[in-house]
């Protein structure tokens, strides 16, 4: 059962990701991405990382995707005047196929490389809960948390500046 859920949600995540390749509307793409993210959150949960699963839903599916959608809304206001945002067509089959092949190749290479290293079987799931993660984050990785904060601040400053200055 556990495996079944795992593989099912993997399939969902992968299929949703694959759908992004072919959909035409950006909004659809974002929705598919959200599906994929949620499926992934389930995977995280199944892999014994409940904190991550929660973060995934809140941060990713919640915050970041909203950012995307919001941006799209802003742009969609003008889509009537400008059709360029619409996906007219995909690329020529040759380059499409080429890129697909490249991606496939990369995947196969990675699979082969993974298969070379022997990983032990794990018997059971050990949940690494919020406590452990928190201890790590605010223990050895404290510096990085602070740095990430500064990074976010920097991004904020940058975004603010650009959004102010960018107005024509």
């Amino acid at each position: 059962m556990y495996e079944f859920i795992f593989y099912c949600s993997s399939v969902v995540a992968v299929v949703a990701a694959g759908a992004i390749l072919v959909v035409r509307q950006p909004v659809h793409a974002v929705l598919y991405l959200i599906v994929s993210l949620l499926a992934l959150a389930l995977l995280f949960f199944l892999l014994g990382a409940p904190l991550l699963a929660a973060f995934q839903v809140m941060l990713y599916a919640g915050a970041i995707m909203v950012l995307f959608l919001f941006m799209m809304m802003v742009m969609n206001l003008r889509i009537e005047r400008n059709r360029s945002l619409r996906n007219r067509s995909l690329l020529r089959p040759a380059s499409w196929g080429g890129i697909a092949l490249l991606a496939l190749l990369l995947w196969l290479i990675l699979l082969l490389l993974f298969s070379r290293s022997s990983f032990n079987e794990i018997d059971s799931i050990t949940v690494i809960g919020p406590t452990a993660v928190g201890n790590a984050l605010f223990g050895p990785y404290l510096m990085m948390v602070e740095a990430a904060a500064i990074l976010l601040l920097a991004a904020l400053v940058a975004a603010l500046y650009l959004s102010q200055r960018g107005k024509r």
């Binding site: 452990a132 991004a155 975004a159 960018g166």
Partner: peptide, 23 residues
Amino acid sequence: ADGQVLVIMLMTVTAAEVAVALI
């Protein structure tokens, strides 16, 4: 827990990146 720390960092950084990129 290092893996999860990495993922959290990833999410944070991604948020920052995406914000600027979207702008």
